[in-house]
């Protein structure tokens, strides 16, 4: 009896020692030498592994950042300038601060604005739906409403509003990682600069149809009338394919375009006061009158000289 116990203990001990030795040797053989800075950079990262930077995860970003000669092409949108400053400090690089961005949903085709013309009966995925057809309303460009963007968001910043059928961005949670932008097959979501105190102006429509077609499909569509384009004195509005687009680099947030838009396709958010359309319109009218007067004053002079 005692013999058996002794033998068992002995065999197991020897076995354990041999296996430990094997493990040690294998670990030694396959050891990978890594730049210790990769670990440091990874620690500084947000750790969301969202892929917003274009790499597979925070570790992949760290590896790429360590290898790269500068940080120009490697930017973590989630961590923003704070994290990038830390990363730059670890690697001894310079970092260029970027303006914070936020996801913007450029479609206002709510159930009310955009009546349904047919009924979808497939898997609830925008990707599948987009491959099949243009969507269950008359608009071929707008939101499909299956919530691929909300499913793609790792930060819980996007949710589908059941009443409007459109996604809603929670600005506080949005990290501008761009996952929703990639997920949207209709390219409705755009990353835009957050703007001073979050104030920004954008066209909430991506419809390229001609006015009457767009108007028939959706009450809130950009009908390509071009009034905003003519009104804007900052040259911030790009007008192409029956659609207006506001260049945020040039926009001065004067809200004139928003006031003159006949369908309400242009949205301004986070402004302290609600837009007083009449006041703005009056201001525009005044300016135009002055401009006309100025032109009238200039003209006779020209004719005299001529």
């Amino acid at each position: 009896m005692v013999n058996i116990i002794i033998w068992t203990v002995a065999v197991i001990t020897v076995l354990g020692l041999v296996l430990a030795l094997v493990l040690y040797l294998v670990a030694e053989k396959f050891k990978v030498v890594e730049d210790p800075r990769i670990d440091e950079v990874e620690k500084a990262m947000p750790g969301a592994n969202c892929g917003g930077c274009g790499f597979a995860g925070c570790r992949a970003f760290a590896e790429a950042a360590v290898k790269a000669p500068d940080l120009d092409n490697n930017y973590c949108p989630v961590g923003g300038n704070d994290v990038m400053a830390r990363v730059a400090a670890i690697l001894g690089y310079e970092v260029k601060a970027k303006a914070p961005q936020v996801a913007v949903v450029r479609c206002n085709g709510t159930c009310q604005n955009r009546p349904k013309t047919n009924d979808y009966d497939g898997v609830a995925s925008c990707k599948v739906k987009a491959a099949l057809y243009s969507g269950d309303t008359g608009c071929s460009y707008g939101c499909l409403g299956c919530g691929d963007c909300a499913a793609a968001c790792q930060f819980g910043a996007l949710s589908m509003d059941l009443e409007t059928g459109l996604p809603v961005v929670d600005e506080a949670k949005c990290t501008a990682c761009g996952a929703c932008v990639k997920a949207c097959p209709k390219h409705i979501i755009e990353l835009r600069n957050k703007g001073p105190r979050g104030m920004r102006e954008f066209v909430s429509c991506v419809n390229h149809d001609k006015g009457p077609v767009a108007k028939k499909a959706c009450a809130a569509a950009c009908i390509g009338c071009g009034i905003c384009f003519k009104t804007c004195i900052h040259g911030a509005i790009v007008f192409e394919n029956n659609l207006a687009y506001i260049d945020y680099a040039k926009c001065k947030l004067c809200r004139e375009c928003e006031a003159v838009c006949p369908t309400g396709a242009i949205h301004g958010v986070n402004f302290p006061k609600p837009l007083d359309k009449d006041a703005v319109k009056a201001r525009i009218a005044e300016r135009k009158k002055k401009a006309a007067e100025a032109a009238a004053e200039v003209k006779p002079v020209e004719t005299k000289e001529a």
Partner: peptide
Amino acid sequence: GPRKDLAGNP
């Protein structure tokens, strides 16, 4: 010019 096909795409 563009006209919508059976899937509604121009």
